[in-house]
Amino acid sequence: MDDLVVLRVGTKILIPFILLFALYVQFHGDYGPGGGFQAGVIFAAAYVLYALVFGIGNALRVMPAKVVYACGAVGVMIFVGTGFVTMGLGGVFLDYNVLAHEPSHGQHYGIIAVELGVLVTVFGVMVAIFYAFAGRRRLDP
């Protein structure tokens, strides 16, 4: 795709904004519409777009398959880990109230942390699915 200059330049311009939008959705997700799932998908979309335009080889160099799988795993652990932290602080599982000096702040922190876990997992899984299908060699006819 070396000859598709417009596409390459367009993509390069778009990707940062998509990533930024993903982060916006993520951090808006505590009390408003948004959240880790959507953010993760948008994040992955940006990455998939990059891989589509610049080739899966380049994409793999940016983020090897192992790292992507690890993302999927780490995200779950962030989610569950948050629950453990709240338990450690004396609340029940995923009781955000105990995370900060007063409950409504705690809820903010807790939701952001959990959504971050979701974001990482969703991103990891989405890209992993993409890798799994795109990285497969064609069957010999």
Partner: peptide, 26 residues
């Protein structure tokens, strides 16, 4: 939202099985 996630996961798993079935059986 959860159901969609489940649906995506099911589809992905199903498709990957189909790919491997295609490789194994042609």
């Amino acid at each position: 939202l959860t159901a969609i996630v489940v649906g995506v996961a099911t589809t992905a798993l199903g498709l990957s099985l189909v790919v491997r079935i295609n490789e194994a059986f042609g």
